[in-house]
Write a protein that binds this DNA or RNA. Structure first.
Length: 573
RNA sequence: CGGGGCGUAGCGCAGUUCGGUAGCGCACUUGAAUGGGGUUCAAGAGGUCGCCGGUUCGAAUCCGGCCGCCCCGACCA
């Protein structure tokens, strides 16, 4: 490709809308263009890279036994009503009607459609296991697209679905995908770690997310430096210990606390740690008010809470809702509370003499004890793990690991789910086993977002000058720079080399523009091809070319006639 | 959806306080010089000042409404 003809222009200044390095570089290198919030166009350099990413994914999916197919982006709403996900995912579904007022959705994912296909084509256990995938556009009306390509509303996903006869088969399919994912991210030059995750609106049991750790990520993970436990904060377990066990329970006592509306203010006033208090939080669970109690120094994990309540729509109550539900903000407490569901963190029964709201304005209670003074309708783990929380992973030999965990941000590069029989039962994906009995297929689903992967590749492979493309996904292998190409000897030598390298099968970007050396070198660094080859009056005087790898600072001169072989060798190493 | 910020040329910005008919740098076009890390000079082209309405002799600027985009949170495979 001649750079003078390349569609896409580099920018000297970074557009103000971009904050993360990957977003800034993608814009500055002229790779992408934003059309609307979370909607992007991909220019030739980006498109070549995305196709390389897709090629790697296809190779690994095929190697794992996957068969590629293609499903539509337009789905009749009935398909989504049948699974119930027209409600579960209603906030992110793009919906529309055709001219006969038929309702459709733009597919945010394809479990419903693949199950349809399964039903039409699979009858027998002999047809299983089945691994099918597609690389398809997904549409999700995300509440907040962000970070350039990190969270899009229209994006491309490789989604593979596995169907097995039983859970042992699912474990095997899951394992295959898990390993394929490790290879894919490795080949793309993005270091990822698998972490335990929440299955969210997808339903199902086991699930891992493949996380690329970066401060620009939107997911939070807890990592144990000792035993390797890794989990999304949504589901992270940890060891909870009572803070004050040596005390005897004391009689309850009401004290005036005007103006003390926060746990911190209350604890400061009384000269006690926040772990000596019981915090009240109000949620609306599918429209029902819920009183949530947790130790004052801890925060509620809404994913755990949502699971415990088995709710579809869970949200923090607004001021109005709190008042309407009859709660007393600032002094709410569970003691004597009636007519509302109470859910408490399972650590509370092990604490003694806590300070809690008196459930009337400007008053709190001292020495509140679970069991004696109040009880919850539901008692379970609803606490959020934080930096330093103790690892609760267990091994046969030592019991709980108990090492303080680290908190890191990360980007979710892919997720693998064991869906189980949820969709099969809901939508009727069954097969006949060897005894002629009808049984539900056991499903798994496995996704990778390609644009997000592109963003992570740039995030993980750049320096202050620009992108440094990993070998397998680079849009071009060689960036051929001709300095003063209008001079006959330079132009001739560069053109000849350009032709020769292409004949030899290299992908070459040839900077044939009439620009100064500084401009060309800076663009070469910004665009980030692995190998820069310079032809100039200066190199030709010595009968040579200059080779410089993007990842290294030094360059070397090689004789003209050795050019092609040296370039080949350099790219192979 | 809550909080914050921003919309003036392709990109980065000034001008808005105090109303007088739009400017700077980069990029772009033409010419010349230069030629190994965003070189220089000269001459150009390019703007419904996000949109609608109002006030006014006159609105980028004041008033009202709306829209879009970014960030934090909520939410989210």
């Amino acid at each position: 490709m001649r750079m003078s003809r390349l569609f896409g222009k580099t920018l000297r200044q970074t557009p103000a809308e971009a904050e993360t390095p990957s977003h800034q570089l993608l814009l500055r290198a002229g790779l992408v263009h934003q059309v609307a919030a979370g909607v992007y166009a991909f220019l030739p350099l980006a498109w070549r890279t995305l196709q390389n990413i897709e090629r790697i994914i296809r190779e690994e999916m095929d190697a794992a036994g996957g068969q590629e197919l293609m499903m539509p982006a337009i789905h009749p709403i009935e398909l989504w009503q049948a699974s119930g996900r027209d409600q579960a995912m209603k906030d992110i579904l793009f919906r529309f009607s055709d001219k006969r007022d038929r309702e459709f959705v733009l597919g945010p994912t394809h479990e419903e459609v693949i199950v349809e296909l399964f039903k039409r084509n699979i009858r027998s256990y002999r047809d299983l296991p089945l691994l099918v995938y597609q690389i398809q556009q997904k549409f999700r009306d995300e509440p907040r697209p962000r970070g350039g390509l990190i969270r899009l509303r229209q994006f491309t996903m490789k989604d593979l679905y596995s169907f097995d006869t039983d859970f042992e088969g699912l474990d095997l399919s899951y394992r295959k995908m898990y390993e394929a994912y490790i290879r894919i991210f490795d080949r793309c030059g993005v270091p990822t770690i698998p972490v335990l995750a929440d299955s969210g609106a997808m339903g199902g049991r086991d699930t891992h997310e493949f996380i690329y750790l970066t401060e620009y990520g939107e997911d939070t993970c807890l990592l144990c430096p000792k035993c390797g436990y890794a989990a999304n904060a949504d589901v992270a377990a940890f060891v909870k210990e009572p803070a004050h066990t040596a005390e005897e329970p004391k009689p309850i006592e009401e004290i005036p606390t005007p103006g003390l509306y926060t746990i911190q203010a209350l604890a400061d006033h009384l000269g006690i740690p926040t772990s000596k208090t019981c915090k009240a939080v109000f949620y609306s669970a599918d429209g029902e008010p819920v009183f949530v109690a947790i130790r004052g120094d801890m925060d509620v994990n809404e994913t755990k809470l949502s699971r415990a309540l088995r709710t579809v729509d869970l949200h923090y109550m607004s001021e109005d809702e709190v008042v309407a539900a009859g709660f007393v903000p600032g002094s709410a407490g569970a003691v004597g509370l009636k007519g509302v569901r109470i859910i408490a963190d399972d650590l509370l029964p092990r604490e003694v003499n806590l300070v809690a709201g008196a459930n009337k304005p400007d008053a709190h209670l001292l020495n509140v004890n679970y069991g004696r003074d109040w009880q919850a309708d539901t008692l379970t783990d609803i606490a959020l793990a934080v930096e330093g929380s103790l690892c609760s992973a267990t091994s046969d030999k030592q019991g709980e690991c108990r090492t303080p965990m680290d908190v890191r941000r990360g980007i979710e590069m892919g997720q693998v789910f064991k869906l189980g029989t949820f969709y099969a039962e809901k939508l009727g994906a069954t097969y006949l086993d060897a005894e002629g009995k009808q049984r539900p297929a056991v499903m798994g689903s496995y996704g990778i977002g390609t644009e997000r992967l592109l963003a992570a590749v740039v995030e993980a492979n750049h320096d202050e000058r620009g992108i440094i493309w990993p070998a397998e996904i680079t849009p071009f292998q060689v960036h051929l720079v001709a300095l003063q190409p209008e001079r006959d000897e330079v132009g001739t030598a560069a053109e000849k080399l350009y032709g020769r390298l292409q004949t030899d099968g290299f992908a070459v970007l040839y900077d044939d523009r009439d620009e100064t050396p500084g401009v060309k070198f800076n663009d070469a660094d910004l665009l980030g091809m692995p190998l820069r080859v310079t032809v100039s009056p200066r190199t030709l005087e010595k009968g040579s070319l200059e080779l410089k790898r993007r990842s290294e600072a030094e360059s070397e001169l090689v004789p003209l006639d050795e050019g092609p072989s040296r370039i080949k060798a350099s790219l192979a190493s």
